[in-house]
């Protein structure tokens, strides 16, 4: 494995004709952390990553691996592993041969193709043609491609899209493991909830512009804490809570108590002698502040 390096995005901009896809983006992605690159559909995530990888030429600005552009890296595949959202496979080629083709181009031993397939759980499907693969299997093959050179930097565009719950869980653990080894992990998503459990840092963009950057916790600005509570006698429960000064609204699944901690709500119920059947803390802060940042309905 090569060491993780920081990714520097500096005043990066891209226009496609009339469309300003990315506007003056400046941020850094540090090694040893999982960085979520978030934004609604059309925000410019894929375009930004493709500029970093030398696939799209920026209109202005630079995106580098600690100062070195992708095309100038002495050994790109062993420095950076990338999986981009578009399924880029020849349907008539087997998964192993797909990896072998690019291992050859990058002068990586073919053994790496077998190892990569094993790591993503595709070992037994390696000789099957990719045309017959499911969406989730293609995602895994994309990840295997990224892992070919055992790189210190991983750039993944929507890697959990199309994966089953087990695949998502596995991917999260995998990304965490990679970052813990000191690699740089940049992973995009249009859903905060998809990555909230596994990222350390977030970079949020919308309409191609930087909206927020910092540790995940820095997103939780609104601090709206809510408690969902229910009991056999909902009426008494609601009275007790209202008397205790809480703002309560009734949902189908129970009572929603605003600005409360679960322990306080439990105490109120206990003091009033009301039986509870459910009590849970809702932390909608992250998702809410994410939505507030990117605006309702995204940028499309």
């Amino acid at each position: 494995m090569t060491a993780g390096v920081p990714l520097h995005f500096n005043a990066l901009s891209k226009r496609f004709g009339d469309v300003a896809a990315v506007k003056d983006l400046t941020f850094t992605v540090e090694p040893g952390r999982v960085t979520g690159f978030l934004g609604p559909n059309g925000a410019g995530k894929t375009t930004t990553m493709r500029m970093l990888l030398g696939l799209v030429t920026p209109t202005a600005g630079t995106a580098t691996f600690d100062g070195i552009a992708y095309r100038d890296l002495p050994s790109p595949m062993t420095t950076v592993g990338a999986a981009l959202e578009a399924a880029s496979f020849h349907p008539g080629r087997s998964a192993f041969n797909h990896l072998a083709v690019y291992a050859r181009a990058a002068a990586i031993p073919l053994e790496a193709a077998r190892v990569a397939l094993e790591r993503v759980g595709l070992a037994e499907y390696g000789s099957r043609r990719v045309g017959g693969y499911s969406l989730g299997m293609r995602q895994r093959l994309g990840l295997a491609f990224a892992l070919l050179g055992d790189p210190g930097v991983l750039v993944l565009d929507e890697p959990v899209n199309g994966l089953d719950p087990e695949g998502i869980k596995w991917t999260r653990g995998f990304l965490r493991h990679m970052a813990d080894e000191g690699r740089t992990v940049m992973v995009s998503s249009h859903l905060l909830s998809e990555v909230a459990q596994s990222v350390d840092e977030v970079v949020v963009i919308t309409h191609g512009e930087l909206a927020h950057t910092g540790p995940l916790s820095s997103l939780d600005m609104t601090e709206t804490r809510e408690v969902l509570v229910d009991g056999p006698d909902r009426g008494s429960l609601q009275n007790a809570l209202t008397e205790a000064g809480y703002l309560v609204s009734e949902l189908r699944s129970g009572l929603l108590v605003s600005g409360a901690e679960a322990s306080d709500v439990g105490h109120v119920a206990f003091a009033a002698g009301v039986e509870l059947s459910a009590l849970s803390q809702k932390r909608s802060g992250l998702e809410d502040s994410f939505l507030a940042l990117v605006g309702e309905g995204g940028s499309l």
Partner: peptide, 21 residues
């Protein structure tokens, strides 16, 4: 085929020197 199946992406990732490819 490189354009049709979008294999230019992995091709240019594995070897960013496009002229050489």
């Amino acid at each position: 085929a490189e354009f049709r199946y979008q294999t230019l992406t992995p091709t240019f990732l594995a070897d960013p020197r496009r002229g050489r490819v």
